[in-house]
């Protein structure tokens, strides 16, 4: 997974740091350095995760948790119930599509603005960054309420400007998803933008100059020199965005009032919450959690595979 900047052309090679030749003692030293974080992650993440798998194999509701009723091992029944639920599959499809829109949206907006930021002077750039940092810093719940307020049917400033008072943005399924996606992109593009901006800035001037001297136009330089160099960055930003956007909860929960009219705007995490946690069916909730983790891993692996095939080197 260590990534080196993939050279676009041999003469543009960026020297990767050479590793010192102290390999023998590396293993032991590394173990020592990794020990504190490792212990913590094993104890507070791996072990609960193992217990999560266990819970998913039991009938485990609130009475079982508080010890009022004995535990019953039911094998894969929770999973069978889940996979037999038509709603699960339709929610799964909307989750994937919704996450895809959010991921692509944040990447496009973030990268576009990063490129824009490299081409303007300090003051406009600082303004853009300040606004973006503000969006990034806003707690998810607050952000959701603000957007809901802006797009309120009667009192929202958006309807006021558009002259369509009374129009509900959350009644129609797609319009509701769109509104939430806009909010998600608003608070997640800054990460992509900052990353890509820093990436562009880090490209050494010689690389660009060399391309320019070769007579390349600005567009060609951008697509054939800069983009390939940025590719590893883009891949990471994409993976992070997939992980975050697939697990969206607060925005959907708050903005569509718990999943929209008759559950039309449910995504997996909200579905899990309503199906399992609010109803205190933890066994089923654990099963969905396990399925979600596996699903995310699959998506990431498939994505990394396609990237590798198209030349990205891990």
């Amino acid at each position: 997974m260590t990534t080196q900047i993939a050279p676009a052309a041999p003469e543009l090679e960026v020297p990767a740091p050479q590793r010192p030749v102290r390999k023998k003692r590396d293993g032991r030293a590394a173990a020592l350095y990794l020990l504190p974080a490792g212990v913590l992650l094993l104890a507070l993440m791996a072990y609960p995760l193992y217990q999560l798998v266990q819970i998913s194999l039991y009938e485990y509701n609130q009475p079982q948790a508080s010890g009022a009723e004995p535990l019953v091992f039911i094998g894969l029944d929770n999973y069978i119930e889940l996979f037999g639920d038509d709603q699960f599959w339709s929610v799964l499809v909307s989750t994937v599509l919704f996450a895809a829109v959010c991921v692509i949206g944040s990447l496009l907006v973030g990268t576009g603005l990063a490129i824009l930021a490299t081409r303007v002077r300090t003051v406009p750039r600082m303004l853009l960054f300040l606004a973006a940092l503000g969006a990034w810093a806003t707690p998810a719940m607050a952000g959701s309420y603000i957007w809901l307020f802006l797009f309120d049917a009667d009192f929202g400033v958006v309807n006021e400007i558009l002259g369509m008072q009374g129009h509900s943005w959350t009644f129609d399924r797609l319009s509701a998803f769109g509104l939430v996606a806009a909010e998600v992109i608003w608070c997640s593009f800054p990460f992509v933008m900052m990353t890509m901006y820093a990436g562009i800035r880090n490209i050494s001037a010689e690389v660009i100059e060399a391309a320019q001297l070769d007579g390349a136009t600005w567009t060609r330089t951008a697509t054939q020199v800069i983009l390939p160099i940025l590719k590893p960055l883009l891949v990471i930003a994409t993976i992070q965005s997939i992980i975050w956007d697939f697990k969206i909860f607060t925005q959907i929960y708050v903005m569509t009032n718990g999943g929209g009219i008759a559950g039309q705007n449910l995504v997996l995490n909200v579905y899990t919450y309503q199906k399992a946690f609010a109803g205190e069916e933890y066994g089923l909730g654990a099963a969905i959690g396990v399925v979600m983790t596996i699903l995310l891993m699959l998506i990431t692996v498939v994505y990394l595979r396609t990237q590798r095939r198209s030349g990205w080197q891990p």
């Binding site: 609960p48 999560l52 899990t272 919450y273 891993m297």
Partner: peptide, 19 residues
């Protein structure tokens, strides 16, 4: 490290509570 970020945290609250 990547996988660790994929786990939906809501699901882990029960085991964590007992731990």
């Amino acid at each position: 490290l990547l996988v660790a970020q994929m786990v939906p945290v809501e699901a882990l609250t029960i085991p964590l509570f007992f731990m």
